[in-house]
């Protein structure tokens, strides 16, 4: 069906104005991006499937997932046939998926953690950062309150225009 009209791997990102707004609002909730998700499907009664190819997936601390992307109606029977044909061609027997909800959650969690770990690695705690224009007592307070490095405290303060509350919230969530 329609998903096939867009070439695989194509980066199609045309957002409507409302979607841009929604993304901006949700981006402020400090959600962790979950990388590596290529497809999200919603199953309705009667084997109707809404599929989002190459979605942007975010996870909140409470375990809620937020998915961006264009949903397309898919014919499940047709897809199953395709998958079987493909599997036969490759000489593989179709195997029932063994993913239950908890293992899916665990996978997502791992992906989110791996991603967070990567971000952490990129930051050198001993990095010397420019503190000009910031109040040293503000920086110290953030370090004291959040246990973050001085460099991180400075970055957070700058990112939030010296808003202490927002900076502490970012580092403690």
């Amino acid at each position: 069906m329609s998903a096939e009209q867009i070439p695989q791997g194509a980066e199609v990102s045309i957002f409507s104005k409302n979607e841009k707004k929604a993304r901006a609002a949700i981006a402020k909730l400090n959600l962790k991006p979950v990388k590596g998700i290529t497809r999200v499907t919603f199953k309705k009664k009667g084997n109707q499937i809404y599929a989002i190819e190459n979605p942007d997936v975010y996870k909140s601390a409470a375990g809620t997932f937020i998915v961006f992307g264009e949903a397309k109606l898919e014919d499940f029977a047709q897809r199953l046939q395709q998958a079987q044909a493909q599997a036969q061609a490759q000489g593989i027997n179709p195997v029932e998926g063994t993913h239950d909800q908890s293992s899916i959650q665990a996978d997502f969690q791992a992906a989110a953690n791996a991603n967070a770990a990567k971000i952490q690695e990129e930051e050198d705690p001993n990095e010397v950062v420019d503190e000009s224009g910031l109040k040293p007592e503000d920086i110290e307070l953030i370090v004291e309150q959040t246990g973050a490095s001085r460099a991180k405290a400075v970055k957070a303060l700058r990112a939030h225009d010296s808003d202490l509350v927002n900076a502490i919230m970012e580092l403690s969530s």
Binding site: T64, I66, D100, I104, V165, S173
Partner: peptide, 25 residues
């Protein structure tokens, strides 16, 4: 998968996130 999309909730949880942030602030 045992995950049941028909019973999954998310709209309410997203709204809760705003309250969570307000209280955190």
């Amino acid at each position: 998968a045992k995950f049941n999309a028909e019973e999954a909730e998310n709209f309410e949880d997203i709204e809760k996130q705003f309250a969570v942030k307000a209280v955190h602030q």
